[in-house]
């Protein structure tokens, strides 16, 4: 399966990738994007089965990316990986159509719980 990872921090993308491997999701193809606008392009190009996105990013935030996708009629499963995991943010994410919110700092178990149903 193909997964797009959008985060403006290259280091954080590396950590997300490492944690995905530790959570047992090593055998998927990961495509990286450095902001929301780039993620939109990569998603159009690759047609992934899942998008993992940061919330705060330049050139289109994560929530703007999700809304843009849904406005295009794209229903790709979408989850946030963000340092802000407040109930309000979770509500906003859910209303926009996100499947889950993983809060930073995270552990492999958080990815196992959230992604198990999507990637297994």
């Amino acid at each position: 399966m193909k997964v797009v990872i959008a985060d403006d921090s290259r280091v954080m993308r590396q950590i997300v990738l490492r944690t995905l491997r530790q959570a047992g999701f090593a055998h998927h193809e990961y495509v990286e994007a450095a902001d929301g606008a780039e993620a939109l392009e990569r998603i159009a190009e690759h047609g992934p089965e899942l998008v993992l996105s940061d919330w705060n990013m330049p050139n289109k935030t994560g929530i703007e990316l999700l809304r843009a996708l849904r406005a295009q009629g794209n229903t790709v499963p979408f989850g946030f990986v963000t340092s802000e995991g407040s109930p309000e943010m979770r509500d906003v994410a859910a209303q926009a159509g996100a499947l889950f919110v993983i809060a930073k700092p995270f552990t492999p178990e958080a990815f196992e719980d959230a992604l198990g149903a999507v990637l297994s």
Binding site: Q22, G24, F25, A26, H27, P108
Partner: peptide
């Protein structure tokens, strides 16, 4: 299952 190598490692 195969693919759980990283789980074993961690």
């Amino acid at each position: 299952d195969p693919g759980k190598e990283y789980l074993v490692e961690s």
